[in-house]
Amino acid sequence: MAKIIFITSDSEKVELEADSGSVMELAVQNGVQGIDGDCGGVCSCATCHVHVAPEHFDKTGPASEIEQDMLELDDDANEYSRLCCQIEVTDALDGVVLHVAK
């Protein structure tokens, strides 16, 4: 079981727990504002953009090349950006803080 903390653009803190699936699915199931996941998690729509808290970036690792290609055209992207449909929930994520980009 991993605890995942979302901070929305309204600075609302949402703490959720899961042991499988993707971070995007967890966020959508719980109505986290700013995570839409329009494409259902196939890395096509870029509506699940988060900034990983820099001190937690080793928990998620960096974006894949395909993710980076999407993110480089996103005006809100930075070096800690991820599309969270591409982050699988595992114990390694426990305690991670994700700032919702939108």
Partner: peptide, 24 residues
């Protein structure tokens, strides 16, 4: 079951398809 599928069938960026939710 293509897992990573960064297609642009609904367009991309500002003008992505308004009707995509309905179509999906």
């Amino acid at each position: 079951d293509r897992k990573v599928n960064p297609h642009v069938a609904f367009g991309f960026s500002h003008h992505n398809c308004l009707g995509a939710t309905h179509a999906r």
